[in-house]
Simulated assay, not measured.
Amino acid sequence: MTSRTVKQLADAGTPEELFTGLWQNRPSVLDEYKTYLDDRWAEGCSNAWKLCEEIVPLGYKGSYQPVSSKAT
């Protein structure tokens, strides 16, 4: 481990501080559908394939993979 890594770990007040970076603030292709997906998940639908099929008519043009990684 480098001294920079040790300092970064020692200086972090919370674990969340270690996970900051530009990549974390990137918009997701699912941002527009987050409310819908959260509602469906709360209703008990955890089948990513079905959720993906449901958001396509709402305008989702992405692939199945981002939906499946959010559903797990």
Rank of each mutant, 00 (worst) to 15 (best):
R4D: 09
R4V: 11
T5I: 08
Q8M: 10
Q8S: 10
A10K: 11
D11E: 12
G13S: 08
G13P: 01
G13A: 09
G13T: 07
T14H: 15
T14G: 00
E16Q: 08
E17F: 07
G21V: 05
L22G: 09
L22M: 06
W23M: 04
W23A: 02
W23G: 06
Q24C: 06
N25H: 13
N25T: 06
R26M: 12
R26S: 07
R26C: 10
P27G: 02
P27H: 07
P27S: 07
S28Q: 06
V29C: 05
V29H: 09
L30T: 05
L30S: 05
E32A: 04
K34G: 01
K34M: 11
Y36F: 15
L37A: 02
D39T: 03
D39A: 06
W41A: 02
E43L: 03
E43S: 04
S46L: 10
A48R: 01
A48M: 02
L51E: 03
E53L: 07
V56K: 15
V56L: 08
P57V: 07
L58W: 13
G59Y: 11
G59S: 06
K61F: 14
G62W: 14
G62T: 08
G62P: 08
S63D: 13
Y64A: 01
Q65C: 12
Q65W: 15
P66R: 04
V67D: 08
V67M: 12
S68N: 12
S69A: 08
S69W: 15
S69G: 01
K70S: 11
K70F: 15
A71C: 15
A71E: 12
